[in-house]
């Protein structure tokens, strides 16, 4: 099989036109999802059943079902409900872009809150006890001791989740959005050259993955400066 080099050179700039949309989907849902994750985390560790139980149910449902199904429920499914059509959220949920952001954020929120919880549970008990012994209140202990350490502990898993989220943005193409994958699918439908187009796009995504990992590697290094200076 011979690759059509011209087609590759032709389609790459076309697909890159969707890069902006891919990045918008990524960064917006990451920000919203992380905020949601923090809320879910606080609910879970609040020690109050009425808060913890809904958070757990939410996480269980969103981690237990495929993201594609979640996207379809939100984009194709919600308009069936009059309640939704008459709500103030309708301008968002009417658009595929809004739906993609909502679905990706809700999904990431569930995963990231579990990652943060792992970080919080990983904080050495002794440190918390030392902080109480110094007279810090529960809230102070969380803000000044637990949270900073937990963030550093969660960073590697968080970076993996950002990569997953980036990969999930490609599913926006299933609800008519023309992100990079959406454009690629259109080109393939016209040219019927899946190898050239999809392989080139995979390379573009690999570069994005690599950039995400590099950035987090850099952040991790900065955040653990004190560890190395001790040794």
């Amino acid at each position: 099989m011979i690759f059509d080099l011209e087609l590759i050179l032709d389609s790459i700039p076309q697909m890159l036109m969707g890069l902006g949309l891919t990045l918008q989907l990524l960064f917006l849902s990451l920000a919203l999802g992380t905020a949601l994750a923090i809320i879910l985390l606080l609910m879970r560790i609040s020690g109050r059943w009425v808060l913890a139980a809904p958070a757990m149910a939410y996480i269980y449902i969103f981690r237990g079902t495929p993201i594609l199904v979640q996207i379809f429920i939100i984009y194709y499914g919600l308009p069936q409900l009059e309640l939704v059509r008459e709500s103030i959220l309708w301008p968002i949920l009417r658009e595929p872009f809004g739906c993609a952001i909502v679905a990706l954020s809700l999904n990431t929120g569930a995963y990231v809150s579990e990652i943060f919880r792992g970080g919080v549970l990983g904080v050495d008990r002794g440190l918390k006890e030392a902080a109480s012994a110094l007279g810090l209140s529960a809230r102070q202990r969380f803000i000044y001791i637990t949270a900073p350490i937990a963030i550093r502990l969660s960073l590697p898993a968080y970076s993996n989740d950002v990569v997953s989220l980036m990969k999930s943005t490609a599913l926006a193409s299933t609800i008519t959005l023309l992100d990079m994958t959406g454009i690629a699918r259109t080109i393939v439908a016209e040219t019927y050259a899946p190898y050239e187009v999809f392989l080139s796009l995979m390379v573009i995504y690999l570069v994005l993955t690599w950039m995400i990992q590099r950035s987090f590697g850099w952040i991790e290094k900065r955040m653990s400066r004190h560890v190395r200076s001790e040794i």
């Binding site: 990969k167 994958t181 699918r185 393939v188 899946p194 190898y195 392989l199």
Partner: peptide, 26 residues
Amino acid sequence: TIVFRGTPEILVLLLFYFGSAIALTA
């Protein structure tokens, strides 16, 4: 591991489906 962990699942799937059909046809 770098390729399959770093690219969207849907792309891999589409590549396999359409790609293998082309290869088989050829």
